[in-house]
C-alpha cells in the first residue's frame, strides 16, 4: 500500500486537496476543524477555525481562515475554484472543546462552544448540510479527512481513534 500524501492545515489556516490526499490538522482544542467534501469529484477542503466572528478582528487584513463566519465562505470559494460543485458539498466538523474547566468562566472561556455555534450558522447560511460532528467535551483532537473517501478520522489522547 502506498502512503497517502498529507496536506497540512495549520492553525487559522485552510486548504483543499483531491486525488486521495489526506487533509490533516493537529492539536484542535477550542478550535474547530470543519471540512467540506464533494463526493462526486472527490475534492475535500478543511479549515482550522480559531475564533467565532470576524467582527472582533483588529488586524488590518483579517486572516479569513481564522474566523468561522469568513472561513466557511472562503473554503467554499476555494473548492469551487478547484472544480467542486457547491450544491454537492457536505460538511463534517470536530473540535470546539473546553480545555480548562473554570467555575463561572467568562466569555472567552466558552470559546469552544461559541466556535461550534458560529461554524454551524455559517454552514446554514450557505445551505450546506452537516453530516456528522464530534464537538465539545474537554480534550484535544487531531483530525484527518481522506479526499478519496470523505471519511473523517479523529484521534485523541483518551479515546484513541474515531471515524465519522
Amino acid at each position: 500500500m502506498t502512503e497517502s500524501t498529507i496536506v497540512k492545515v495549520g492553525m487559522a489556516d485552510l486548504n483543499v486537496a483531491s486525488g486521495g490526499a489526506l487533509l490533516r490538522t493537529t492539536g484542535l482544542g477550542s478550535c474547530v476543524g470543519v471540512t467540506l467534501y464533494d463526493p462526486f469529484l472527490k475534492i475535500a477542503g478543511m479549515a482550522h477555525i480559531m475564533l467565532p466572528s470576524s467582527e472582533i478582528a483588529r488586524e488590518g487584513q483579517p486572516n479569513l481562515a481564522k474566523y468561522a463566519d469568513t472561513a466557511v465562505p472562503e473554503l467554499v470559494r476555494r473548492m469551487e475554484a478547484a472544480g467542486a460543485d457547491p450544491r454537492r458539498l457536505a460538511a463534517k466538523m470536530a473540535g470546539g472543546a473546553q480545555m480548562f474547566a473554570f467555575a463561572g468562566g467568562s466569555d472567552s472561556m466558552r470559546i469552544g462552544p461559541r466556535n461550534v455555534e458560529s461554524t454551524k450558522q455559517a454552514l446554514e447560511a450557505l445551505r450546506i448540510p452537516l453530516l456528522a460532528e464530534d464537538t465539545g467535551a474537554n480534550y484535544g483532537r487531531t483530525v484527518e479527512l481522506d479526499s478519496g473517501t470523505g471519511i473523517y478520522v479523529i484521534r485523541s489522547v483518551q479515546f484513541g481513534v474515531k471515524e465519522i
Binding site: G27, I56, R58, G140
Partner: peptide
C-alpha cells in the same frame, strides 16, 4: 489538563488571535 500541546496552548492565544 493533560493533553496535546497544540490544543492546550491555542487557548492562551485567543487574545492575540484578533
Amino acid at each position: 489538563a493533560v493533553d496535546m500541546a497544540g490544543a492546550i496552548l491555542s487557548f492562551g492565544l485567543l487574545q492575540f488571535g484578533t
